[in-house]
């Protein structure tokens, strides 16, 4: 068996122990071969990571499409509805008492905006603890949005990881830099990743803050019809806007 066949068997995952030892020997003997093999292994890691992203996105869509819709069609989760109704009623009373019936879009924004929690940094492990990614999310959690926003931008330029756009949009909103936030969310939504509907929710809020309730309305309606992220809150918002 020649070197090429050993490599082929390696990537097919069918290398025997004996073959693995032979491959190891060949790699030690031949620097150029070893270098090429390293690149091949890195390519494998890259392709696996791409596959991971696709699968993750598929699973979150499945979750949003199937299970959330199931809940609403089965009617077996009546407790949730009672709870949701209670919250809606509670909020409306609160709204009626404190805001009058005509809250401005900006007030509605303030009522609803909360930067999306960090679900990225907890998984950043095994690397060096001082990476820019960890620092940026640490800043984000501390509420240092200025520092976080800059870091997200730098990281996005370097890696092209699209969730960074989503978090950057959040940081910009928190900094009241609404127009920039709108641009960033819009560019994030050019592709659909795990944060797609979350991003649309925040874009809707940004439109409210920017006093463009009609733009927010369209987005919120879709959020509700898709039973997507925060759709119950979207329903409440819609009822107040319409």
């Amino acid at each position: 068996m020649n070197k090429e066949e050993l490599v082929e068997r390696y990537f097919s995952g069918i290398l025997s122990e004996d073959e693995a030892r032979r491959l190891q020997k060949e790699l030690q003997k031949d620097a150029a071969f070893s270098e090429a093999f390293e690149l091949e292994k890195e390519l494998q890691a890259v392709l696996v990571s791409k596959g991971k992203n696709d699968l993750k996105s598929r699973l979150s869509h499945l979750e949003a499409d199937k299970y959330l819709k199931d809940q609403s069609s089965q009617g077996s989760n009546w407790l949730r509805y009672v709870a949701a109704a209670a919250i809606v009623i509670g909020l409306s009373i609160f709204g009626a008492l404190y805001m009058g019936n005509n809250a401005t879009p900006e007030e509605l924004y303030t009522e609803n905006f909360e930067p999306y929690r960090n679900i990225i940094a907890p998984v950043v492990r095994g690397g060096n603890a001082e990476s820019l990614l960890e620092k940026s999310f640490a800043a984000y959690e501390r509420g240092n949005f200025e520092q976080a926003e800059e870091a997200f931008e730098t990281l996005y330029e370097a890696s092209g990881d699209r969730y960074l756009l989503f978090y950057r949009g959040n940081a910009l909103l928190a900094l009241d830099r609404v127009e920039e936030a709108i641009t960033v969310f819009e560019s994030h939504q050019e592709t659909q990743d795990n944060f797609y509907y979350k991003s649309r929710w925040y874009l809707a809020l940004a439109y409210l803050k920017h006093n463009k309730p009609e733009m927010a309305l369209t987005l919120l309606k879709e959020q509700v019809s898709q039973k997507a992220f925060n759709y119950r809150a979207a329903e409440t918002l819609l009822s107040k806007l319409e």
Partner: peptide
């Protein structure tokens, strides 16, 4: 079971791929 980020070289490789 631990998560690892792509290295800089791998990020570049992904872009070129």
């Amino acid at each position: 079971f631990e998560e690892h980020q792509l290295t800089e070289r791998q990020i570049a490789l992904r872009k070129h791929f």
